[in-house]
Design a binder for these strands. Structure first.
Length: 461
RNA sequence: UCCCCUGUAGCUCAGUCGGUAGAGCAAGUGGCUGUUAACCACUGGGUCGCAAGUUCGAGUCUUGCCGGGGGAGCCA
């Protein structure tokens, strides 16, 4: 008989036919003469209840089944007389593929803390929460691709290993084949000419610069890949290895960028609501009350767009007591961003036109000479989810900005060439994929929305 | 990297004034004809994170190290 998925069974309009399901036992309850098994196969957060009666062949084996065992169950799908489920399987035979010694199997049929589950990351996908996280993660990935594909954006692959010494977005992990116990030295410095690439190389901290090169040929592009930051960040919002989405549009200015970000977020949220209703219901009930309606609110909302200068004004007039003072020219603190998006507007807020000194060199300088065409999208609960800008496409201005930022324009000759030949206004943004999963699921710690998180002092599994 | 909290049974935690280890759940055994975090009874289960120090005596006090959590910075 052909195996069917639990998701398909639960969607069936009728019962009374034979089925074969394969999955893992979540829990078992024994009574005199019969047992209830709950089997989950990962196709849905819901389990299928299996009833095994004493009279069935091999019942003495069934009695030995415990949480975690992998099984194949063949039997008739019947309407369940009990409460809590529509259907159940009246088992005719149960085959155990693999036992799970109940004295050693760490997952119990009780709530575990996320901290504990992180220590057994190889088993936590078998829990309700992580199964749901991973299904939402999958749906979100697909939504990202379908959004951009529907709009004709070209999915491009930017390098993971890069030899640009200073991309400027954060500390890089070094990539080397040098013998660390015997590093070649020339004039007191490491001789990178002997290294694999003949120069200092590292893992990418952003695909943006290369993305710009491709956008100024193909028009609209996006990247969706892994990104690495060697920052010693110990927070619930940072990973050393995470996934980032970076669209880049040629012939586009900041308002186009903002529109794209807003349309994009609404699309991917709606896609997840539509395709993962059971998982989101679980998150709404167990992780973050009101989650679904807050996502629906955002889909229907118009994002607030304010300038940095207006934001500073709002904060100064707020009457709130902030730990850090608000001063034009300094970066907004987490508490400030939270006030703006959570208290003042209670919806996503796009803050634009930041002072040039607190933003990256590649952002387009405004006519006032003081601010740049940057935008941060702030959302309630997690703060900055998107950072983007219109890029400086004027060659001379960009060279000046590089020099003022302490960068050597010669090392960016290829980046500057784009401005030298057929330069066009262009704009793009970066979206932290895991932060977005956090936002959609309500999960508080970013380490719990990626299967195997990499953080300082932690790279197990 | 900084500040605060924390580390005791498989898990979640309690442990008073320094006097030699407790609960709930889980697990094991038995019971129960429809369970839903099943229920009832009984049983087993400990390098108190690691190292040093103070003390007649340390889970408890002191110092150092390591891990975990929350917040900050950096950022996505």
């Amino acid at each position: 008989m052909k195996r069917v998925l639990v998701r398909e069974i639960l969607q069936s309009d009728t019962s009374g036919f034979d089925v074969l399901v394969k999955g893992w036992v979540r829990t078992k309850r024994d009574s005199k003469g019969f047992s209830f098994l709950e089997v989950n196969d990962g196709s849905t957060i819901k389990n299928i209840q299996v009833v095994a009666e004493e009279s069935m062949p091999g019942y003495d084996e069934v009695l030995k089944i415990s949480t975690g065992c992998s099984v194949a169950v063949e039997g008739e799908l019947v309407d369940s007389p009990g409460k809590g489920q529509k259907y159940e399987i009246k088992a005719r035979s149960i085959h155990v593929y693999g036992w799970a010694d109940s004295e050693r199997y760490p997952l119990q049929k009780k709530n575990h803390t996320f901290e504990f589950l992180r220590e057994i990351a190889h088993l936590r996908p078998r829990t309700n929460t992580f199964g749901a996280v991973l299904r939402v993660r999958n749906a979100l990935s697909y939504a990202i691709h379908s959004f951009f594909q529907n709009k004709g954006f070209v999915y491009v692959h930017t390098p993971i290993i890069t030899a640009s010494d200073c991309e400027g977005a954060g500390e890089m992990f070094r990539v080397t084949t040098l013998d660390l116990k015997n590093v070649p030295i020339v004039n007191g410095d490491i001789d990178y000419e002997e290294d694999f690439f003949g120069k200092k190389a590292g893992l990418t901290v952003s695909g943006q610069l290369e993305g710009e090169l491709l956008a100024t040929a193909l028009g609209n592009i996006y990247t969706f890949g892994p990104t690495f930051r060697a920052e010693n960040s110990n927070t619930s919002r940072h990973l050393a290895e995470f996934w980032m989405v970076e669209p880049e549009m040629a012939f586009a200015e900041l308002p186009d960028d903002i529109s794209l970000a807003e349309e994009f977020l609404k699309y991917i949220f709606k896609y997840c609501i539509d395709t993962c209703p059971d998982d989101l219901e679980f998150f709404d009930m167990r992780i973050q009350k009101g989650l679904i309606s807050s996502l629906e609110d955002i889909i229907l909302s118009n994002f607030e767009i304010i300038t940095y200068t207006e934001a500073v004004d709002i904060l100064k007039k707020s009457g709130e007591k902030f730990e850090y003072p608000v001063e034009w020219g300094t970066d907004l603190q987490s508490e400030h961003e939270r006030y703006i998006t959570e208290k003042k507007f209670n919806k996503p807020v796009v803050v634009t036109d930041y002072p040039k000194d607190i933003k990256a060199f590649y952002m387009k300088l405004n006519d006032d000479g003081k601010t740049v065409r940057a935008m941060d999208v702030l959302v309630p609960r997690i703060g900055e989810i998107i950072g983007g800008s219109e890029r400086e496409y004027r060659y001379d201005v960009l060279v000046d900005r590089m020099k003022n930022s302490g960068l050597n324009p010669e090392e960016y000759w290829w980046y500057l060439d784009i401005r030298r030949f057929g330069s066009v206004p262009h704009a793009g943004f970066g979206l932290g994929f895991e932060r977005t999963v956090q936002y959609i699921t309500g999960m508080q710690n970013i380490r719990d929305v990626i299967p195997f998180p990499r953080t300082p002092k932690s790279a197990d599994f």
